[in-house]
Structure formats: structure tokens, C-alpha cells
Design a protein around this nucleic acid. Structure first.
Lengths: 224, 224
DNA sequence: CCGTTTTGTTACCCAGATGTAACCGCTCAT
DNA sequence: ATGAGCGGTTACATCTGGGTAACAAAACGG
């Protein structure tokens, strides 16, 4: 698990890096905006922690740059009393924020929570109804049958549907969750992926029992 | 969108309720733990905001009780300097937290972010009288009958009528709300759509009980 | 490197959703 | 009474969105 930390305060950077390393995360440090963007591109971290006030490019710009390419969880750091910043950051697609000063333990807890929410860290098998998903192995089992291998995207799609089992998930949301960023014109991708997933998990892919279409809105996983 | 707020500080409760109401959320208030748990069971809110220090049952207990039955987003409120609490809360399944004191705007932004993350922004079922609309599933249920699928336009029309249940909505307004822009001469569209919707929701489409015509002005949804 | 797998793109089909037109029957003002 | 206006209904044309196939491009694995 690789964490990108961007902050211009050397001491704080060191402290955070130390704490996270202790907790056995890999840490990538950046002391200003441009360095953060570079680090993001070169290291492809799993999560980013960005200070809002940095020389070069502000945390906002970094956040925007990351969001243009990736859906990794982003946590913003800010000083007390600048709520305007936070609202803007959340609008830009940040997932969480922390107000300075904070204890390293708090940051750690928040990072864990973020990762858990993003479904990155949890590797235990998840199940609902007849569908049992093994994220580690990239496989599903339908009603106890043989495990079927899934590709990365198929897995992500199924994870999303499973997390909302029984309810319809809108195409737009799936698009964002699975691919990260897409102009909504790219429905064809989703169509294809659904089709391919159905070939793997449906007894009769032409008459889906599990992965059903909610015409005009999205798809849902039917569980009994 | 219904928000459950639990805090023993009456003033704060009032302030939060006010802010959220302004932002057109439905608010359910609770002044202590047991009241919060009761409110959760009776009102089935879409999101819960819980103070950790409350008489009766602590926020932890409420959080636990909610998590035992539901996966709605939970935000915890705490006073500065009690990070232990936060870690425990996150472990219990809380999704986010806020440190007192905070500005109402911040709380609002956080709630929005949480709802967005949970993907339940505007999907919760809406009901009035015998009509229960599920926007997410694109279905209606009339007096507990089987859900009926609606098309995009039918859904929009019914949403508009439901939002003004009991009152007549003018044809022009409906045209604008459902189609966006239309020269008001285009009443044929509305005629058609009303007709089609009646086929789906009226017991006897020829003698409408629910979706009635207000001659010369528009249509209204009759609720008891 | 090369072959394989995964992912993205393009094109086409079809059902169902939506738009358009014509007609019916009622009411009301002339 | 009668024709204009309005709403309801029927019938049909057109459009949209989802499913499928075939292929191209990219990523992966040896």
C-alpha cells in the first residue's frame, strides 16, 4: 500500500512518513505541488494526502491533476478555520480532509477508513445471496459452483454491484467507480463490460438472472 | 433526504436542524441516545449524525445499534482532543467525524460529501398517500400493490406531481419540468404522457382516481 | 521480443420509449 | 344547433438505449 504525502512543512512530512512507515505503508514524499504531481505520475500511489497550502501548485491544483487521471482516495490537509477551502476541495473530488494540527494516530485512522471505504484494502471474500466474490483471487463463485476468473474491470464492476446488492446502481456511478473518470458518453464501455461479465456469471447470458438491467437507469445485482 | 441528528446540546441541535432544513433536508432530532435509536427505527433516515457524549446511551452505542441493522452513512461529532474516541468510532463502522466546534457550513459540506460517496443523493423512495415512488428503481407502488416500472419521462412527471401532491400543477409548468423547454403549444406531448402514466397507475384508466385533470389548467395528484 | 489476454472502438439490430397526427366526444358561447 | 376548443384515445412514425459481434489497440506474461 503506497501513500503519497505532500506538504511543505519538512518536520510534519517527516513525522507523518515515520508514522506511516511504522504502520508498514510505503511512503512517497513531496515538498511542493509540482513534486507531488510528478510523484503521483511516477509512483502511482494508492492514496494521496495533500496539504492545501503549498508553494508551486496548491493542493487544489494537485487534487485536480490527480482526479483528471485517477480515482484514488485523496485526503486534504488544511489549517483550522478555512472552511471555504474544504468545500472547494470536496467539490474538486477530494474524499476526506483533516484539520491541522492533528495527531499522527488520527491521520492513520483516517487513512485506514478511506482505504476501507474505497474497497482497496479489504481483501476478504465478500458474498451476497448466490454470489461469492474473492477479491484476492479475482474469482467469483455462483451458488457454490466452480470459481470463475474475473479480469480487473469485471471484478471492480461486480464489487460495486455487490456492495449495493439488490439496488439499482446508476450507469454514471458505475462508470466513475470502475473507470475513474469518463465523459458519460462512454456508456459503450459499460455495455461491453456488463456483457462480458454476464458471459461469465450467468447460466443463460441472454436471460440474465443475476445482473439485471434497470432500463433507463443502470444495473443491479439480484439476490434472494 | 432525511437526516437524523442526535446531540444533547439543544442549542447546537437547533442550529444544525435549521441549517439542514434551509438546505432542504428533512431533519429528525434526538436529544439522547435512546431517543436516537428510537428515531432511527421509526423514521429510517438516510444518514445519521451522532454526538459521542450523550446521556442515556453514548454515540458509540447508537452507532453500534444502527450498524447492526443498516449501512446508512454515520457521522460522529466529538470535542477537540479526544482522538481515542474517533478511532473507536471508525472501528465501530462510522464513516466520518467532525470535531467541535465546527461551522454549520462545514457540517453541510461533509454531509453532502458522505451522501455523494454513498451514492444515495436523491434516490430514496418518496411517498404520499397511496403512491410510493422509488426513483432509484424507476418504479411506483400504488397502495402496496406490485411495483410498476416507469419510463424516464413518466417518472419525471410523477415526481413533479408528487412534489405538489394535492395541488394542481399547470400544464406549462409540467412541460418545462419534464421536457426542459417547449413552446407551450406542445400540449399533445403532455396529453400523451398523462395517458400513458394513467395506464400504468390507475385501476381504471378511463376514470382516474389519482391523476386527475384540472380542466383548463393542468393536472393534480389526489392523495388522501 | 512474441503470443495471449484484456480493454477499447465501431457497427449493427431490435425493442421499447417518445413524438406526431388524426379523430372522437364533450362543453360552452354564440 | 353548431362549431371552436379542450382533453382523451388510437394509430403509427421515429428515435433512443441496450445487446451483440467483430475487430483494433493496449497491457500482460513468458
Amino acid at each position: 500500500m503506497k501513500v503519497l504525502i505532500a506538504d511543505d512543512d519538512r518536520d510534519l512530512l517527516g513525522l507523518i512518513a515515520f508514522t506511516l512507515t511504522q504502520a508498514s505503508y510505503l511512503v512517497v514524499k513531496a515538498a511542493d505541488g509540482p513534486a507531488a504531481i510528478r510523484a503521483f505520475e511516477e509512483e502511482s500511489p494508492d492514496i494521496a494526502v495533500l496539504d492545501i497550502n503549498m508553494p508551486g501548485a496548491s493542493g487544489f491544483q494537485v487534487c485536480e491533476a490527480i482526479r483528471a487521471k485517477s480515482r484514488i482516495p485523496i485526503m486534504m490537509l488544511t489549517v483550522r478555520g478555512e472552511e471555504e477551502d474544504l468545500i472547494r476541495a470536496l467539490d474538486l473530488g477530494a474524499d476526506d480532509y483533516l484539520t491541522k494540527p492533528f495527531s499522527p494516530r488520527t491521520l492513520l485512522a483516517r487513512i485506514k477508513a478511506l482505504l476501507r471505504r474505497a474497497g482497496i484494502e479489504n481483501n476478504s471474500p465478500v458474498a451476497a445471496g448466490r454470489v461469492a466474490l474473492d477479491v484476492q483471487e479475482h474469482t467469483v463463485r455462483i451458488s457454490g459452483g466452480n470459481p470463475v476468473r474475473l479480469t480487473k474491470l469485471e471484478l471492480r464492476l461486480l464489487q460495486m454491484l455487490l456492495a449495493n446488492a439488490g439496488r439499482t446502481v446508476s450507469s454514471d456511478r458505475l462508470l466513475v467507480q470502475v473507470w475513474g473518470h469518463r465523459n458519460s458518453g462512454d456508456r459503450q464501455l459499460l455495455k461491453q463490460l456488463v456483457h462480458r461479465l454476464r458471459q461469465k456469471i450467468e447460466a443463460d447470458p441472454a436471460a440474465p438472472q443475476l445482473l439485471q438491467t434497470s432500463a433507463g437507469s443502470g444495473y443491479k445485482l439480484v439476490v434472494e
